[in-house]
Nucleic acid binder design. Structure first.
Length: 692
DNA sequence: GACTCGAGTCCCGCC
DNA sequence: GACTCGAGTC
């Protein structure tokens, strides 16, 4: 099998023991190296189930599983290598050792919306004015603390400003509420596993001893907790292989620390380092642009991607009058290419923020080009699905206050705000979950008679549903549940538009299907198991990234979602100061801009054959039209350092004079749009003919 | 307690 | 522009 590998790849595959760092540039066959290495280990006598490979996304884990399965001839029922994300790995460890971890046997995993309601409650409790600290700000801080393994006490000690002090107190309350509900949030999955390893060394030893080899993908994106976990799992046998590219570290904002990969050799003395620099993905002119751009970053392992292919088309850089025309022209071009025989799935439109795809979606629909918006509003974020899941969680783990709170009056059953508040107050005062107040009583004495009746009806409903789930299969019980709560009637009531009603109802049915699929797939299906899968990114989410990308449709996604993918034709859109680099990063400057630059680099290196980079000269934001400023990266990728520097200074000036909001500025950007060599059919020519 | 309407807010990326 | 929240009304 080694014949299909180049010499560097072969070296990485054949180094079978000891610490190994594979510095893999974009498109250099990293996945191939990892899967071949796993196959080689097995060939050399390592039992498959004693190999652990950790990825960051479910998509990467699934893909790696499939590739390994294709490579390893396996007897039916023979063990497989354990390939999973950090989060799934930690859930399994915590569920196996729930008692030692101080968790109830069936703990719920809180998602973003649950976290937000906890954050809101915590801020209310300590009377923090909304303009000082919003729930989303608090959650970002908490996540940052947790990914750096900082507990509330430590956060309080470290607080340098009033705002941080308040946030740290809110963090303490947030954590208390989480513990009271016996729940964990996403960051807790990692942090509590680390705590468990620290407090119970026998658990750490047992868990680490399950594996003889550990592989970590995308090592540049590990945060502090993940770094500690990796150490704990591999320090005994030292058979650790990490793979990554410091130039593609784009998750600094959620605690990823690029220094982990930069100092690997110091952490693991005797480590071998292999560099993969031969790029099999992109045409040479595309790589030239990428190399040029990334050379502006300071702290990095020096690398130069070399194209394995010769020839190729020079990337285009285009400016459009506004974002509407940007969308129209790009979609028009894609439509014509499809007419000429290209396949829709060969195209990707990449952007920085989630508000950018809207005009593209409209155009794709109008011009009848099949497309798929990857990420964004997920199936499981839909209101009706969230409602159903809240019921399921309340049934599986009644201590889940967030779930009970959501369904208490959904559909409306006469339990209004006042009643809800009184129940919550009683729960807090008694130090018990909300469900205990409802089910065991006594109900607060000041409840109105009608309210008390409604609450006890609600209790009976949940008990009846729980009994049903005990008796029958999951999908069957969910169908019964939807019926029992009268959800169809609720949808009729809420949505007058029959199309919307239909689409919402279809989503509900889809959930039943997902549950049925899970039931047939899982070895021992349980409601908690189903909810775990969904919380961890839903491997059975038929609308998830992977299956979305398998459809023959143009892919629309953020640069963050695009990492690890490749397309023959890539449109990297909205290259403007304020978007890429984003305003928030311009404010911070320095390393934040470097990360934006890496993001842009990731975008460029997704393209195989043709790359188009575009921007709009004006853009509508909150209903107002504003003139934009070309991104500094456009000039950097062409090696025009001076112009890039000018732009950076202008962007900062705009920020200073407008408290963070770019104002229309007649003088700004009067300079010619970035020079490109538009062919006659270039969208720019056609765009200028349009009057609008 | 449920519903409607208008003012104010939204200001990145995600497992 | 789109969404949320709170005051006012039934």
């Amino acid at each position: 099998m080694a014949a299909r590998l180049n010499s560097a790849q072969r070296e990485a595959v054949e180094t079978l023991s000891g610490p190994l760092l594979v510095l893999a540039g974009a498109g250099t066959g990293k996945t191939r190296v990892v899967t071949y290495r796993i196959a080689r280990l097995i060939q050399h006598g390592t039992q498959a189930h004693r190999i652990l490979a950790v990825t960051f996304t479910n998509k990467a884990a699934n893909e790696m599983q499939q590739r390994c399965a294709a490579l390893i001839r396996r007897r039916r029922g023979a063990p497989r290598p354990e390939i999973s994300t950090f989060h799934s790995l930690c859930v399994r460890i915590l569920r196996r050792n729930a008692k030692q971890a101080g968790l109830p046997e069936q703990f719920p995993i809180y998602d973003r919306a649950d976290q937000e309601s906890l954050a809101r409650a915590a801020l209310r409790e300590i009377n923090v004015p909304g303009e000082m600290l919003r729930p989303s700000d608090l959650l970002a801080l908490i996540s940052h603390w947790k990914s750096a393994a900082v507990r509330p006490g430590e956060a309080l000690r470290r607080a340098a400003s009033d705002r941080e002090h308040l946030a740290a107190s809110a963090y303490r309350r947030y954590q208390k509420a989480l513990e009271a509900a016996g729940a964990v949030d996403f960051d807790d999955l990692l942090l509590r596993t680390w705590d468990l390893f620290e407090c119970a060394s026998e658990v750490r030893r047992t868990e680490a001893a399950r594996f003889d080899h550990v592989l970590i993908d995308e090592y540049q994106d590990t945060n502090q907790t993940q770094y500690l976990l990796v150490k704990a799992l591999a320090e005994e046998h030292r058979n650790l292989c990490v793979v990554g590219d410091d130039d593609q570290s784009i998750y600094g904002w959620r605690g990823a620390d690029v220094t982990h990969i930069l100092r690997f050799e110091r952490d693991w003395p005797g480590a071998k380092v292999v560099r993969l620099e031969k790029n099999y993905r992109s045409a040479a002119p595309i790589l030239e642009l990428a190399n040029q751009l990334i050379s502006y970053n300071r702290h990095r392992h020096p690398k130069q991607l070399r194209a394995a292919r010769s020839g190729g088309v020079k990337p285009r850089i285009v400016a459009f009058p506004d974002e509407q025309i940007e969308a129209e022209e790009i979609v028009g071009e894609i439509r014509r290419a499809i007419w000429d025989g290209a396949s829709p799935r060969d195209f990707a439109i990449l952007f920085r923020t989630n508000q950018q795809p809207r005009p593209f979606e409209n155009e794709l629909r109008r011009q009848q080009v099949p497309y798929v918006l990857v990420g964004g509003m997920s199936f499981y974020d839909r209101r009706e699905i969230r409602d159903m899941l809240a019921y399921l969680r309340a049934i599986a783990t009644p201590t889940d206050d967030a779930a009970i709170d959501r369904i208490l009056n959904t559909p409306p059953r006469g339990i209004g705000d006042t009643t809800r508040k009184r129940l919550l107050e009683a729960a807090v005062a008694r130090g018990v979950p909300l469900w205990d107040v409802i089910s065991k009583g006594p109900l607060p004495s000041d409840l109105a008679n009608t309210a008390a009746t409604a609450v006890s009806e609600f209790r009976k409903l949940i008990e009846r549903l729980a009994a049903r789930f005990d008796r029958s299969g999951i999908a069957t019980s969910i169908r019964y549940m939807i019926d029992a709560i009268g959800y169809a009637a609720e949808l009729d009531r809420l949505y007058s538009d029959p199309n919307e009603r239909l689409s919402r109802w279809a989503a509900v049915e889809e959930l039943v299907n997902a549950a049925a699929q899970y039931e047939s797939r899982a070895k021992r299906p349980t409601l908690v198991g189903l909810l775990d899968e969904i919380a961890l990114g839903g491997q059975d989410d038929s609308r998830d990234k992977e299956s979305q990308l398998q459809q023959n449709a143009v892919a629309l996604m953020t640069l963050h979602s695009a990492k690890g993918l490749e397309f023959p034709y890539v449109y990297l859109v909205g290259l403007e100061e304020g978007l890429l680099p984003h305003t928030r990063s311009i404010e911070i400057d320095g390393s934040a801009i470097d990360e934006e630059r890496r993001l842009c680099y990731v975008g460029i290196t997704r393209a195989q054959d043709r790359l188009t980079v575009s921007r709009a000269k004006t853009r509508r934001k909150w209903g107002k039209i504003r003139e934009t400023l070309a991104s500094r990266f456009l000039f950097e990728m062409l090696g025009m350092s001076d112009r890039a520097g000018d732009i950076a200074r202008q962007a900062r000036r705009r920020l200073d004079t407008s408290t963070g909001r770019p104002l229309p500025d007649k003088k700004a950007d009067r300079s010619k749009p970035v020079k490109s060599k538009p062919s006659k059919s270039s969208p720019r020519h056609r765009a200028s003919r349009r009057s609008r």
